[in-house]
Amino acid sequence: MTVAISVTDLVFGYQKGNFTLSCPHLRLEQGKLSLITGANGSGKTTLAKLICGILRPSGGSVQIFGQATSELSLGEIGRQVGYLFQDPSRQLFAGTVWKEMTFVDHLLESEQGTSTKKAQDLLDRFGLGELKSRSIYFLSGGEKQRLALCTILMGEPRFLILDEPTVGLDKQNRVILYDILDDLLREGRGIAVITHENELIERFAGAPQIKVERGQVSL
């Protein structure tokens, strides 16, 4: 078994308010799906943001694939761990579906031969192949989420963290999402899903559950 994420003696407090998160010990395995559950406002998203380096801990450490996040830049973390926001429109900004997929390449003016194919393949695989020239403002919630996932997968992260991915999705889109998760697992990726919805928890009933309650993380 490979450990993807390991957290030791993590402590974090927001500047505003008196909320603190503490996580003495946490291991997330590569190639498996783990559930991070708990009520709204319990600190699930905070934990995820700490793992991705969006927030920096006030004490303790987070390691991804053996490297401490404190020594990595956000860009370096992103190449290992992908993070899907609860509201995926927050991570889309390029105008059209295709521009979104190639945004980073354009920005860095890198070679586009291989990545164009990769972008096309990903869109096809997630059922967005026909929507290449569609404006991101005219995508449905489910389509936005799948596009955000595609942009994340462009960087080929080995591990994915999904923040409340079922919120705002109707039944049909939820089923599509579950199939995508199965698919990503078959590819050998590790996944952590943050959720407070029973349907998803029941769907992945065998998965290890990490509970977050009032800022306390426990297995």
Binding site: V167, L169, D170, K171, E197, N198, E199
Partner: peptide, 9 residues
């Protein structure tokens, strides 16, 4: 208007 679509059970 699709007020149920995002609700839990």
């Amino acid at each position: 208007d699709e007020a149920f679509s995002q609700l839990d059970t």
